[in-house]
Design a protein around this nucleic acid. Structure first.
Lengths: 232, 232
DNA sequence: AATAAATTTACAGTAGCTGCACATTCACGG
DNA sequence: CCGTGAATGTGCAGCTACTGTAAATTTATT
């Protein structure tokens, strides 16, 4: 389940130019299907795209489509969910001096970007997702499905800092909440990014989002609302 | 769209014992369908329940089912989404001295509880939702669909406190983020509640969740991780 | 080239969901 | 009480997503 690691390359996405003809063909039809899906959507509008249309455009049978994607939506979202690479995870656990929240968010963002080597496809896909509530929902669900895994990673980071159940009884809860907050921030950031038509710096948006969270919760949340922003 | 307010009663949910026979029948079949859905799920397991089964149990045609619910899942989730009552909204905007986050969360929680007068049904439903990823996802989506409306309400609260675009340029962003955080907290709380089999005090769980957020973001998120909890 | 394994495909079938036309039921004024 | 219109229930035909299965085609291995 977790094998299939690269042998010479480090890119987690690419099928590898070696790996044999079989793997290459497989990657090709998958890419063709994903591209066809997005293409058809931009041409006819998402709701008017049927699986059969995608199949015809990609020159495969409908049954083959469902051999690659569990659902129709998966073809639009991209098959590979944004799972951070092992290296990124290790770096996150060790830490770069930032806050859990900020670094978690950045790690996931990197994973999303890395999940699609083709910039144009990624961009078209994100635009489509952002403008299609149905797809946007699916995207959120996908992130939610990563939650347990991510919470485990956060927990490892905590433990690497000497925090355990002994020092913090509800540390697992805290880890889960960190992931939840990170997802909120990402949602916000993705929305913002699409609003600015992806011209704004993604990192800047993320910082802004994290700043908002700080502003909202910075003061004791049981006493008063946030006051004026201090800077920026 | 926003009319149909009560005439003598104040309960926002009940069809009213008056309102005419037509309304009563409608409410009855809807309740019957929702009850049948949950009942069938507890008997055969969610994934083995078909719309036809629900219809047979509720003694209506399939076509009628879809006159009441847009999707099959809606029957399990309950038709009425958790929209806070006008009074609750007004109270929230005015404020009771708590933080935005805490009060928002409490308001939504109240709306969820109020959306189903029957305690047993509510409980069975929540258990089912919590144990069915598919339904849980739908539930999240539903909350997300309220986001814009809720953000508007939060904005009103801000303005009632003298905060406007002038004092805080990104105040709309802040409102959206408040809603996002509230949803995170609710998700966490719902999960926790189902883990404890709904024996724990919901309010206590919410406080715990909010406390976690505070702990995580209390310190400048760009410098260090959260330190030891200060109390509790 | 022969065999095994992976991939593709056609075909049949289930289930969610919709439009439409028609029957039934309730509301309301005379 | 009756007739009329609006709301609601239902049957039916049809589209689309999705699945199981078995047979065909393609790639890998020896």
């Amino acid at each position: 389940m977790s094998s299939s690691a690269a042998s010479t390359q480090s890119t987690p996405t690419g099928p590898g130019p070696d790996e044999g003809l079989r793997a290459r063909k497989r990657a090709a039809t998958q890419a063709a299907l994903e591209a066809a899906a997005i293409s058809q959507a931009s041409e006819h509008g998402y709701h008017h795209v049927t699986v059969d249309m995608i199949c015809e455009a990609a020159q495969v049978s409908q049954r083959t489509f469902f051999n690659y994607f569990a659902t129709k939506e998966a073809a639009f979202l991209g098959a590979s969910p944004p799972i951070p690479s092992e290296g990124a995870v290790k770096r996150f656990i060790t830490g770069n001096g930032g806050s859990v929240l900020a670094e978690l968010v950045l790690m996931i963002e990197s994973a999303i970007v890395a999940s699609e080597p083709d910039r144009d496809v990624l961009r078209a896909r994100r635009t489509l997702i952002e403008n299609t509530p149905e797809l946007f929902s699916s995207e959120i669900i996908r992130l939610a499905e990563l939650e347990d895994r991510l919470a485990g990673i956060v927990l490892q980071r905590f433990e690497a800092r000497g925090r355990t159940e002994a020092t913090t009884p509800d540390i697992l809860d805290e880890a889960h909440m960190v992931v939840g907050l990170a997802v909120s921030i990402l949602r916000f950031a993705m929305r913002k990014a699409s609003e600015s038509d992806y011209s704004a710096d993604p990192r800047a948006i993320l910082r802004h989002a994290i700043g908002l969270v700080e502003r909202i919760t910075g003061v004791n949340p049981f006493t008063t609302d946030a006051r004026e922003p201090r800077r920026d």
